[in-house]
Nucleic acid binder design. Structure first.
Lengths: 232, 232
DNA sequence: ACAAAAGTGTTGAGAGTACACCCATGC
DNA sequence: GCATGGGTGTACTCTCAACACTTTTGT
């Protein structure tokens, strides 16, 4: 049995390489946007892809994800969560490369990305107006979007896409855009308030019309509510 | 930048190895049980661990999981789902080994496991009476249990632990044991029926007391309900 | 007939949904 | 003063949770 022998005696060099890729979302201009880099090298040279790269032998996979993301953005206050591991043979034409995909949520006040190293360019792209993506990154994106929509409904990920202080309409727009449906202003406000996760501030955001009160997520607001029984 | 050079010119042999481990649950004797194998070789020789092993260069990770599970059980009608990838340096004393953990749910009529290859022994163990586990498998188990409890509330995983035909009390016991709380018989039955996912059969299961009608999951019952809005 | 588990209905409380008007500010 | 977005309350429906007795079978 090759597996057994390998586990006992070999040097453990593997023919499988491991990368970490990051699907990083930001919410700007009332749109959900995605961090993409333009690949400088083959394969898929010139195509857009998620930031990512090989995991070093002595760093954790998550550290690799953070590092790759850091190379492209100012990286401040990131929410990072492991998404799924994609490893079908053939997903990378070079060799057998398995990637651990991460979901990152950035607040709108992170800087603009800058090309670096293996990136000829880097940019935020609205998710509903994307160029074709390299590798199986479109499938990964689909998965990330599904997860984001899903978690929006039972966790506080929606708040991670906003500035630390935000108004109710800003929060509502995040929910509306990601869920692709419109919500009732009064019911939305009541539901959020009932959850008791916000702290009001004395500050207001002025724009057109009446200024809106700013709120922040309470520090002790648990990140994820225990699911109420839904099923069966 | 080492990552960049590697991605362009190296032979891609990596110092990171990849394994697939399977956390396989079965529900027997009104208990949630776990498939464990007793390790024949170092490290952790003689300790219990999940079935698992190295991913071959030309097989998918999921195939590796299925294969490793197949070596231990009759393997029929398995539900398999990727759980999480654990890859902290140091989790395996031999070298840098990253493992993709899978959750498997088996129906009670799968056979008993048999030791094979790298397993000196194999057995079902009740989850609340386990021996110490090798590697970081206790952490992986914790994660698996959390996921199982979570999904029980919004998907049909509970049904995957039962025979194809089952009674309402059997289903209720699965829910009660895994959620560790007792449920009201009438409310439970009503809720399941309202979900409209069951097909009644004309068959009955006799035991002590009045025989109970057997039901089966409808073929067209979707595997996962769309979450109702819970949050905020 | 009795022990054991199956099966069945009702009621009250709380959450979800639908819906329309006044308020504070900038121009 | 008017345009713009902010902020508020009520009525109806539906789901959830609590709760006890009758039915069917085997012994």
């Amino acid at each position: 049995m090759p597996t057994l022998q390998r586990s006992q005696s070999e040097t453990y060099d593997s023919q499988i390489s491991l990368t970490a890729d990051v699907v990083a979302f930001v919410f700007r201009d009332d749109q959900l946007q995605l961090l993409l880099i333009k690949r400088r090298s083959e394969p898929f040279q010139g195509m857009w892809a998620f930031p990512g790269g090989f995991v070093e032998p002595d760093e954790s996979i998550e550290s690799a994800a953070v590092r790759e993301l850091e190379e492209e953005t100012g990286l401040r206050d990131v929410y990072l969560e492991q998404l799924y591991t994609f490893g079908k043979p053939g997903r990378d034409p070079r060799s057998r490369i398995v990637t651990v995909a991460y979901l990152a949520l950035l607040r709108p006040d992170v800087g603009d990305p800058h090309g670096a190293d293996d990136a000829e360019d880097a940019a935020w792209c609205p998710v509903d107006d994307l160029p074709p993506l390299a590798f199986d990154h479109e499938k990964i994106l689909e998965y990330a979007l599904e997860r984001l929509r899903y978690k929006l409904e039972y966790s506080d990920v929606g708040f991670r896409l906003l500035p630390v202080e935000f108004t109710f309409s800003e929060l509502k727009i995040v929910y509306e855009v990601i869920l692709q449906e419109s919500l009732d202003k009064r019911n939305f406000r009541r539901k959020v308030l009932r959850a008791n996760i916000l702290m009001p501030t004395n500050r207001y955001r002025s724009g057109e019309g009446r200024p809106a009160q700013l709120f922040r997520l309470r520090d002790d607001a648990q990140a994820e509510i225990k699911a109420r029984r839904l099923f069966p």
